[in-house]
């Protein structure tokens, strides 16, 4: 007989409002809404430490996913994608001699296996302990994504790096990272706790602008992956960089103008602008390095470092924009499906 673990059976007193969120912008017609609600509605059960540990676990899994993305970039950068010809075993064993390109390829596989294990544990942990159905589903979507990612990785080895599979592998990696970051965010104590919500003109536009920017950054990452794996399409990637820069500037400008007191938005916007600046420099550096290295007989350390950093910072730009988007839907009220993750706070007008 299958029994389901108890979820949120003990209603708790209202959680204190965090001081960092909210604020009033004169002249913007902002109405502050109270965000008093019960913890039971937010999916916090009596075992606060359990929820904290779940969040910490998600955080570790997300960090490992970021390391995995770096490891994957190192495999491509060192041209070691086919250093291990077989899959799922490596040279017919679980631990081949870690020499040359095998180090990168098998290292990538080992980290991927570990991330797969962490994701499995996280998905089942969420299934057992999480009250929000959407978050539980998100856990299983992440599990499905990591399995699909492993299979794509295997296909790419067995079929000698077909471009479409390699690009899909790179893109799914970023999507999986987004899923893990989302899970970490929505399981965080700050997210679970109440939030003062601001109602200002242009919320809807800002939220959609954030979502649009995140979507476009993802498309830009696809262009980057296509360039990296097929060595073509630099013009599209450059145009994409320009569009992303404009969109991020619009987002940051609006945060500075309308929501400078909303710390979660302000911090994310600040980090996003810094990362974007770094990413633009890394992109230029990668391109120049590649031009300079055309006659090289082996991948140069400097080129591998800068292109790997470009991939890693690109992933960070994407997830920072995603965090900003999710926070915008959380902090700024808007009837939409995003709020399912935060279990819709009750609004009481003051």
């Amino acid at each position: 007989m299958v029994t389901e673990a108890p979820r949120n059976t003990n209603p708790s007193p209202p959680a204190p409002l965090p001081g960092g969120e909210g604020g009033q912008r004169p002249g913007e017609g902002i109405a502050r809404l109270n965000a008093s609600f019960c913890c039971s509605e937010l999916g916090i059960n009596s075992s606060v430490s359990g929820a904290t540990w779940l969040h910490r676990f998600a955080l570790v899994a997300t960090f490992c996913t970021f390391v995995l993305i770096i490891a994957g970039a190192l495999v491509t950068g060192n041209e070691a994608g086919l250093a291990v010809p077989d899959w799922p075993l490596s040279y017919g064993s679980l631990m081949p001699p870690m020499v040359g390109g095998i180090r990168y390829e098998h290292g990538h596989r080992m980290i991927a296996g570990f991330v797969g294990l962490l994701t499995t544990v996280l998905a089942f942990w969420l299934w057992r302990r999480e009250s929000r159905r959407s978050v539980r589903m998100l856990g299983f979507i992440a599990l499905g994504a990591v399995v699909a990612q492993g299979i794509l990785g295997g296909i790419t080895v067995l079929f000698f790096l077909p471009t479409i599979i390699s690009v899909s592998h790179a893109c799914l990696a970023q999507a999986f990272f987004c899923l893990m970051v989302s899970l970490t965010l929505v399981t965080s104590p700050g997210w679970r706790q109440g939030v003062r919500q601001l109602e200002a003109r242009g919320n809807s536009f800002f939220q959609r602008l954030c979502a649009f920017t995140t979507g476009f950054i993802y498309l830009q990452l696809i262009l980057g992956a296509a360039l990296r794996h097929s060595r073509s399409g630099i013009v599209f990637h450059l145009v994409g960089a320009l569009v992303v820069t404009v969109l991020v500037m619009l987002v940051v400008t609006r945060v500075l103008r309308y929501y400078p007191d909303v710390s979660s938005l302000f911090r994310a916007a600040l980090v996003l602008s810094i990362l974007l600046l770094a990413q633009l420099f890394l992109g230029m550096g990668s391109y120049l390095m590649r031009l300079a290295a055309r006659q090289d007989v082996q991948p140069a350390l400097a080129m591998v470092t800068i292109t790997t950093a470009h991939v890693a910072v690109g992933a960070l730009v994407l997830v920072t924009s995603l965090i900003l988007t999710l926070q915008s839907y959380r902090v700024l009220p808007q009837a939409n499906k995003m709020r399912r993750f935060s279990a819709a706070p009750q609004k009481v007008a003051l």
């Binding site: 471009t163 479409i164 690009v167 097929s230």
Partner: peptide, 14 residues
């Protein structure tokens, strides 16, 4: 756009 980009990537390689 995603589909177009993946198809483009597919056609762009060797």
């Amino acid at each position: 756009l995603t589909m177009m980009l993946i198809l483009y990537a597919c056609g762009g390689g060797e």
